[in-house]
Amino acid sequence: MAENVRPRVKAPKSASAGEVVVLKTLISHPMESGQRKDSSGNVIPRSIINRFTCEFNGESVVDVKMEPAISTNPYFEFEAKVPESGDFKFTWYDDDGSVYEDTQSVTVG
């Protein structure tokens, strides 16, 4: 597991039914591309987050396939419809099998 991986999510705490909200995510991760060499000339093996998903109450908002060209500390901004109160679940999948998760609750009032 890459060190100090920390997901950050910006989501509203409340919304009206059917409202479209903007979500932002940022996760600390080196996204080692597999293209770089260390000081002795050996290729540093690829180690990236290769997939990011966002779901609301189990239904997909976005599912992103990520390649090494995504920058260090991957950032995404996208929009989601909020039909009812519930939880956004954000999941990042690491090359090494690690899975990082965050959940944010939204109240529809």
Partner: peptide
Amino acid sequence: PTPGVATFNFGPLAGAQRAKTRIR
């Protein structure tokens, strides 16, 4: 060196088919 960057698959709850990211 490899052309792939990302593929965004939008689900039924996507508020818009729009995304921002940062790339190399």
